[in-house]
């Protein structure tokens, strides 16, 4: 796409403050463009949930400089598109893939129902995750979530999630 603009990027370990910094920069950009508050909140939610997932679950490979957390946000005339990557243990990849495939099969009504079931039944994990992040991303995106696992080693893969939020 010729008019695709790279708005924001980050590469390297992610701190909580860094997430806040990226969110503030995105908000300032969206405000400058005069976009409506709902679009901003949707991009905001998708960024928070995906970046906090990286923050809580980053299985950093010591000394590795090639597979650090990565975040990129693009905008074209149709949508915001974000790519969020981090290394994960292969043993976590199966359940992650299952959860992504599950939300990708559901429409908005189905996602709302799944969110309701999960929030009413689920407990919050010691890391503070409530099992709701991926469902929330799918709800605000209203597009299928793209993902990829690039093999790194017998233990790790480089996981990338692609979230699109339409400008409508």
């Amino acid at each position: 796409m010729s008019n695709r603009e790279n708005i924001l990027g980050h590469y390297g370990p992610l701190s909580y403050d860094e997430i806040g910094f990226l969110l503030n920069r995105m908000s300032a950009y969206v405000d400058r463009q005069g976009m409506n508050i709902t679009i901003k909140k949707k991009v905001y939610s998708a960024m928070v949930e995906s970046l906090e997932n990286v923050y809580k679950h980053q299985d950093i490979i010591n000394g590795d400089t090639e597979y650090q957390p990565r975040f990129t946000l693009f905008l074209d005339n149709k949508c915001f598109s974000m790519f969020v990557s981090n290394s994960v243990l292969n043993k976590k990849a199966v359940s992650l893939k299952e959860r992504l495939d599950k939300v990708n099969q559901l429409d908005l009504k189905g996602l709302k129902e799944l969110y309701k079931q999960t929030i009413l039944s689920g407990n919050v994990s010691p890391k503070g995750g409530a099992g709701l992040g991926i469902i929330n991303i799918a709800k605000v995106s209203e597009n299928k979530i793209g993902y990829n696992f690039e093999p790194i080693s017998s233990e790790h893969a480089y996981f990338t999630i692609n979230i699109e939020i339409s400008l409508k």
Binding site: K41, S45, E49, E52, G128, L132, G133, I135, N136
Partner: peptide, 12 residues
């Protein structure tokens, strides 16, 4: 003004 999904569990 905003709450993440983990907060929504606790607000509930």
């Amino acid at each position: 003004t905003y709450f993440n999904s983990a907060s929504s569990k606790f607000l509930l």
